[in-house]
Design a protein around this nucleic acid. Structure first.
Lengths: 229, 229
DNA sequence: ACCTGAACACCGTTCAAGT
DNA sequence: ACCTGAACACCGTTCAAGT
């Protein structure tokens, strides 16, 4: 007699992730243990493993769930149709502030991304939208690439890097990516093509660091010179 | 007969931190456990607790050890004597790149700072030097304050924020800080004074986020407009 | 197919005990 | 003063077993 299925709906991947999200939002990331999560679900800890292979899979799933929420918040990842050279920056600004509004609801997520990365389809499509906005603004793929590094910590609410893991994608993977994130795939194809040496990690971290740093220093010097004396 | 004191020098706070640094550099942060650290020292795990109260104290100690290394690398935290409005930006650039060179030798440290903060005396004096450079360049305390937020992730090799914990320092603490980090203390005194509402967390995170974001967007727009067509 | 219980190999840490 | 050993309360996870 499946009486208990009346009081406790059904354990699924989705219900586990939903409960994990609530638990982390309420009590923080360190409170998200398999045992605490099971208790919240009214189930034994080991039951979770039937629906998700391990805790890392839960964390990866949470990142994707939140990026789905970001997609809602910004009205879809596609660049606004009217984006051009005159308004790409405000469009990107809105996109990034929208992502930030969501991340402020889940302040523990940047730490998860920092530890586990954010390379699921939703996260990829988010980046794709940002690339699309810059592309519509008339930026070269090379400049877009540098820009992604420069704004990375802002995009993800202060996290490490975009993807040091993002070692050179094999051509096959790049084809798969193109279906999901065409702007991003086009950028990668061009950047990798232009610099074929960079087979292990296609980004020169030092160059990217200095690019972003100089952007900030230039802006600060302008602010300084504009100060009332 | 203290024979073993010949083969194993003496356990001290410093030798524990030195071994912890080596262990983290070699095997990563997740390999730094009390038991593994004890083994590296040729001692039982519990012996460490005689010299340091707990693991958090070890992590805090490591942050300070690395900031001492940064002090060496940049030739002292004091601003170069010749710093003025014409060269403050290159001076700050060198300071930040020097810190980065050290952090690249200890790539696990940003994660420690992210989790534990960096509020020891050496870390404070590092920030003090940065404030001093900007001050010598003729920036107002208010602009310096915004600037610190904007370059925070670069200063610390991509970490969260400067100090959300840095809630309003009590006047007494501020006096103590002045002895260690006079430029920083002067800035805090002025900024807190100007905005007395901000008794809980003297920074408007949203404002600081947008300040840094706009700095980047402006710079990127200039780069875009300068592209060859 | 879905869930459970006992057990294992780890953590950081307390506490009483050794020398 | 300095170090040890056993034990505790946690982790994530394996594996055989239940229904």
């Amino acid at each position: 007699m499946p009486q208990r299925s009346v009081v406790r709906p059904q354990l699924t991947r989705e219900s586990v992730l939903q409960a994990a999200l609530q638990l982390a939002d309420r009590d923080g990331l360190e409170a998200l243990t398999m045992r605490a999560l099971a208790e919240q679900l009214g189930v034994e800890a080991m039951s979770i493993y039937y629906h998700l292979p391990n805790k890392d899979a839960i964390l990866d799933g949470l990142v994707e769930v939140v990026f789905a929420e970001i997609e809602q918040e910004v009205g879809g990842f596609a660049p606004p149709p009217s984006t051009d050279a005159s308004n790409w920056a405000p469009a990107l600004r809105e996109r990034i502030l929208g992502a930030r509004r969501v991340l402020l609801r889940h302040p523990w997520l940047p730490n998860v991304m920092n530890a586990r990365g954010a390379s699921g389809p939703n996260a990829m499509r988010h980046v794709d939208g940002v690339v699309g906005i810059m592309r519509a603004g008339g930026m070269s793929h090379d400049l877009i690439h540098h820009s992604l590094h420069a704004i990375g910590s802002r995009m993800y609410g202060y996290v490490q890097e975009l993807s040091d893991d993002g070692a050179t994608p094999a051509p096959v993977e790049l084809e798969q990516l193109a279906a999901l994130a065409p702007h991003l795939a086009a950028m990668l194809a061009e950047v990798v093509h232009d610099d074929p040496d960079s087979t292990l990690g296609w980004c020169d971290d030092q160059t990217e660091f200095e690019f972003g740093l100089d952007l900030l220093l230039e802006g600060l010097e302008r602010r300084r010179a504009a100060q009332p004396t």
